[in-house]
Design a protein around this nucleic acid. Sequence first.
DNA 1: TCAAATGGCGCC
DNA 2: AAAGGGCGCCATTTGA
Length: 550
Amino acid sequence: MLACVPLPDGRYAVQGTTDDGAPNGPPRRIGAGELVAAADERWLWASTVDDYPALIATGLRVPRCHDIAAVERILLGRAGAFGDPVTPAAVLARAAGEPVPSPPVRPVGDAPSLFDLTGPADDGVDPLEVLRLAYQDQRRRANGGGALSLLLAAENASALAAAEMGAVGLPWRRKVHLAVLDEMLGARPALGGRPPRLAQLAGEIDAAFGFPVNPDSAVDLREAFRRVGFDIETTRSWVLKGIDHPAVGPVLAYKELARLHSANGWAWLDQWVRHDRFRAEYLSGSVVSGRWATRGGGALQIPRLLRQAVVAEDGYRLVVADAAQLEPRVLAAISGDAGLQAVSASGESKADLYAGLAADGFGGNRASAKVAMLGAMYGQTTGEGGRLVGTLRTRYPAAMGYVDGAARAGERGEVVHSVLGRACPPPGTYWEAVRIGRQQDATAAERKRADRLAGDRGRFTRNFVVQASAADWAAVWLAGLRTSLADVAGAELVFFQHDELIVHAPAPAAGEVAGLIERAADAARRLVFPGSAVLTPVRPVIVDRYADAK
DNA sequence: TCAAATGGCGCC
DNA sequence: AAAGGGCGCCATTTGA
């Protein structure tokens, strides 16, 4: 293992380190250009998201790492201490029972410095020593067995993949995107102006109402519909669709196009796409469930319409793969529900679990089966989904009992865990209101508030056990694939979105990559759900454009 | 006048 | 078919 600390002067302090965290060579101070990543070496550093991008920029690729901050977040979560500082200095202070120093505030965009690592009062302390001690302490605390080790390994690998994906970027043809904008919105307006198509629709909306309305204002729009006799609470599209008034058509069209303009319009293109690559910042450790988030550009919300702009470069293909119906399959595995596992592995269900469910209790109605399963995992109680959950409850009692149990635990204020041991956050300060509302002498209003808050948390924990376990599986999938891709020249992970990924690969290697993706998925299934009969199939598709993958 | 909250909607 | 989980982002509104 190689311990590595960026220094304020732009160089790096590095030192060979054993797996026990003992020094295994002399400390050296070297420039980034002198760093070499041996193919099988593991790097130890404070934070991948802070320390790795500068190395990637020099062309370095680190095969494996131990990320103090990423590991600390998971360990702290299991100890019920979400949000506490995760620097090595904080880790050490915690281990010693001393007050944990707040991480120093640094200006946005400022380079990470030694101070981030050791805190301002640590003059003379060897940062490599701090790193090693923090590592040793985490090693002691992370003795929760194979599942936790697997989770930490996947989290570390995810952090590397996230940094690399951010640096590489998603192939994005500016010309294609511009053509879409021109067709949908018309010519690019002056700064702050409305595109022609939006201006035209705004005019149609005014005409339909008979008085001026600002369709960008939900307040104004709701007031307008009330004036013409429709007493609506919100102006959400699905509410408007139920209204019979000539303004509805242009309003819905306006909303759709305004969204395109503001979220992925010309300004977005200028800001986020350079040299036909969309570069976002991926944050692998910032969602409590273990899913990734992004900062800037909305990389995890690319509209289907714009996936035609994601085009492989000449001589390359995109290998697009998603895990079909991952969450219900994960539920089948973690609940041990034999019936649901059987459905996941039977005949056509291998490719389409919902079709199998439909055949098994919904009269062949796939849409109903899907609504019911989503309702069960999200805690839906009303409407069609809520009604259909009952069918699932009789067909798959173990699976439904599992999510119901997670919901009840959440309502009691308890913490639930993913299959690999990621903990959900404990209830926040609002739980005091729940406690008050549950006392004998609580008022009706207090009881009602308590019920609502407890219900909210129950739906959160119900979904957490499924969503976080799916994230566990996906992280192991991604980690395995990343490792195997290292042997395919020119192949790069360029996108990852919860249960779906894209590899940009030289055309002759695309078929091999597709095989690696499938093998990584099968390996993840065996590692995350050992002994389970459940299947977690992925469907790699080799295409030129992302839009052609589905 | 500014920052935080809200409404709405895109993705899973 | 309904509005139940997780996010990020924008424009507007609200409140200090």
